[in-house]
C-alpha cells in the first residue's frame, strides 16, 4: 500500500527534455508558467496547450504516466470548475437549486481548469525528465547569486538531496515496521478514531528512533570524509550549458513573441 507512493518520480530517458541543462529547464518552466498567467486569451491557450502536448510527446515518458500526475488533484480541478460554473453572472442555461449555471461560467471555469492542468503537467514534466540530484544542483546554482543576502544555497541543496535520498528508505522502513506490528495483532484498518491514533505509536516510535540513528550515522560518515560545507567544493559532474539549451531558449523566445501577438490581437 505504501509502495504505491512515488516521490522523486524521475523517468530515465534520453529525450531532448532529458538532455536540457536543468538550470535552463527550471528557468524556462518558470517563464512558461508566467506566460500561462499572462496570456489569458483563448488562441494563446490553444498554442500553450499544443506546446505542452508536444513537450509531453517528446519527453518519451508514457502519456498515461504523465496524466497520472493529475490524479491526486482532479477533485480540486472539478471543484474549481463547479464554483465558476455556478457563480459567474451571465446567460443561464440551467438552474440548480439556488445556483444559475451560465455559459460564461462554463467558459471561464474551463479556461481556469485548463490553466491548472497545464501547470500541473508542465511541472511534473520537469520532475519526470530531471533526476532529483540534477534538480537540486540546479537550485543550488540558481540560488548562489543570493548568497550575499544570506541565502544558504549549498546547505539548502544538500538538505534536499539528503531528504530525497531518504524518502524511499523511510517508506520502506515504515512498511516493514507496520508489517511487524500487524504480525503482533494490530489492525490498522479497524477501530475508533482514538484507537487508530493509538495504533500509530508502535509505528512512530521505532520510525523516529531509526531516523535519528540514520542521521547520526550519516553525519559521522560525512565528517569522516571531510565534509565541511559548500565553501570551495567542486562537483564531479558540473552543469554545462550546451547547444540544445540555446536552441531551447531561442524557441521559447519565438513562442513568447507568437503568444504576445495572439494575445494583443484578440484583446
Amino acid at each position: 500500500m505504501l509502495s504505491s507512493i512515488t516521490i522523486g518520480q524521475y523517468y530515465p530517458g534520453n529525450s531532448l527534455l532529458h538532455r536540457l541543462d536543468p538550470r535552463v529547464k527550471l528557468l524556462l518552466l518558470l517563464a512558461f508558467m508566467v506566460e500561462i498567467f499572462v496570456f489569458t486569451a483563448a488562441p494563446a491557450y490553444a498554442v500553450l496547450s499544443a506546446m505542452t502536448l508536444l513537450l509531453m510527446l517528446n519527453s518519451g515518458v508514457p502519456l498515461k504516466i504523465i496524466m497520472g500526475s493529475l490524479k491526486p488533484l482532479w477533485w480540486i480541478i472539478a471543484f474549481t470548475f463547479l464554483i465558476h460554473l455556478c457563480s459567474t453572472p451571465g446567460d443561464a442555461f440551467a438552474q440548480v437549486w439556488i445556483f444559475a449555471l451560465t455559459w460564461e461560467g462554463a467558459a471561464r471555469g474551463g479556461l481556469i481548469c485548463l490553466r491548472l492542468v497545464l501547470l500541473i503537467l508542465l511541472s511534473s514534466l520537469l520532475t519526470f525528465t530531471t533526476s532529483p540530484l540534477k534538480l537540486t544542483d540546479a537550485m543550488e546554482a540558481l540560488l548562489r547569486p543570493f548568497k550575499g543576502l544570506g541565502v544558504p544555497a549549498h546547505e539548502l541543496a544538500m538538505m534536499m538531496t539528503i531528504a530525497l535520498r531518504f524518502v524511499p528508505t523511510l517508506i520502506e522502513e515504515t512498511d516493514r515496521i507496520m508489517k511487524a506490528q500487524q504480525s503482533r495483532g494490530v489492525d490498522f484498518s479497524e477501530g475508533s478514531l482514538l484507537k487508530r491514533a493509538q495504533n500509530m505509536v508502535p509505528i512512530l516510535v521505532p520510525l523516529f528512533l531509526s531516523a535519528f540513528r540514520r542521521a547520526d550515522d550519516l553525519a559521522l560518515a560525512m565528517e569522516a570524509r571531510c565534509y565541511r560545507g559548500g565553501e570551495g567544493r567542486t562537483q564531479m559532474k558540473a552543469l554545462r550549458v550546451s547547444q540544445i539549451d540555446f536552441v531551447a531558449v531561442g524557441a521559447f523566445l519565438l513562442l513568447t513573441v507568437l503568444l504576445a501577438a495572439l494575445y494583443f490581437y484578440t484583446v
Binding site: R176, A180, Q181, R184, P202, P206, S210
Partner: peptide
Amino acid sequence: FQYPEQQL
C-alpha cells in the same frame, strides 16, 4: 522479521 529489535 529481520532485525526484529527495530520494532520495540
